[in-house]
């Protein structure tokens, strides 16, 4: 990581040995990751989903919110591969559009958690002492409340909306990023290059941003990948409870919740959205596991 990223793409005319030396650590990580078949499969599924989410208007056969009472509660057919819901809306289209919300919520919530948690952790780890103690005790307080209960309380207070859902899930994930970053910051802050930066008069903020944080990247990336999976699950759970995304928006958790009352006669209304959530979360978890193994080969069993 101390190498410049540029070396990755730098033209190299030297012999293989020399080229091997010049490869950045990220290249090494990628090489290890590529050998892990499960991780590659997980990554492919995640990439595929991002593509589906981006191309939703092109891929979806119908408008996800187009109701058609004549066609309500139709089982899967060639016309509607995943059936239609109680308003006659095409389930496949709704699931395709639902991927947008799930991925969006997952990434933004983790972004909120990782940025604020990361900053708090870096400050705590860098300065140490009372400030560190205070920050970590605050994180203990957040950890003492079960994640989903905390998220429910926050959504309850702020009201149900997409943004509030992301804030609630993000805050409930804060402590894990704070802890991870703090742990790395503690090991990094005594290093010579940090002292060197201080000696040349760099400000604390600059040292934290330019020297501490980049060296905590590996655990942050792993935590975030697994965090997105957790965030998608939490957001879906909140929507399922009626405290997240509200109908008629096509979101997997709330689709599951509204399909629930037709469990007996139209089980596909609950089966497919749940399957979609499971596949995304499973893919992210497998990818995250693989990433951890490639970033830290020591942990590999």
């Amino acid at each position: 990581m101390n190498n410049e990223n540029g070396t990755l793409f730098a033209p190299s005319s030297g012999r293989t040995k020399e080229r091997e030396k010049r490869r950045s650590p990220w290249w090494e990580v990628w090489r290890r990751l590529r050998r892990n078949k499960a991780a590659v499969a997980g990554m492919s599924v995640v990439i595929l989903l991002v593509v589906v989410a981006v191309l939703a208007p092109v891929l979806a056969p119908y408008d996800p919110n187009q109701t058609n009472i004549k066609m309500r509660l139709q089982g899967p057919s060639s016309e509607h591969p995943l059936g239609t819901d109680n308003f006659g809306r095409d389930m496949l289209s709704r699931i395709i559009y639902g991927s947008r919300i799930s991925l969006y919520v997952g990434f933004v919530a983790v972004g909120i958690g990782a940025v604020f948690g990361g900053i708090l952790g870096a400050i705590g780890g860098y300065y140490g002492g009372r400030l560190d103690n205070f920050i970590m005790r605050c994180m203990d307080v957040l950890l003492a409340i079960p994640q989903i209960i905390l998220a429910i309380a926050i959504v309850g207070a702020l009201g149900t909306s997409l943004l509030n859902l992301m804030i609630a899930v993000g805050i409930s994930q804060l402590p894990r990023y704070a802890r991870v970053v703090r742990a790395s910051a503690l090991t990094v802050r005594g290093q010579e290059y940090v002292e060197a930066a201080r000696a040349v008069g760099a400000s604390d903020a600059r040292i934290i941003l330019e020297n501490i944080l980049p060296n905590c990247m590996a655990p942050i990336i792993v935590q975030s990948t697994l965090g997105v999976a957790q965030a998608i699950l939490s957001a879906a759970a909140l929507s399922f409870l009626g405290l997240g995304i509200q109908p008629p928006t096509a979101e997997w958790g709330s689709m599951l919740s509204s399909g629930r009352q037709f469990l007996r006669n139209a089980p596909y209304l609950t089966f497919f959205p749940g399957l979609a959530i499971s596949v995304v979360v499973l893919a992210l978890n497998i990818f995250g596991d693989g990433l951890r193994d490639s970033l830290d080969p020591k942990l590999r069993q």
């Binding site: 759970a237 089980p267 749940g274 978890n285």
Partner: peptide, 22 residues
């Protein structure tokens, strides 16, 4: 174990209900 960790538990609940109650 990984599947157990990844599938939403509310979905597991509904599917169990579908299977064992319906």
């Amino acid at each position: 174990a990984l599947v157990g960790f990844s599938i939403p538990n509310f979905w597991v609940g509904l599917m169990l209900m579908l299977l064992l109650s319906i």
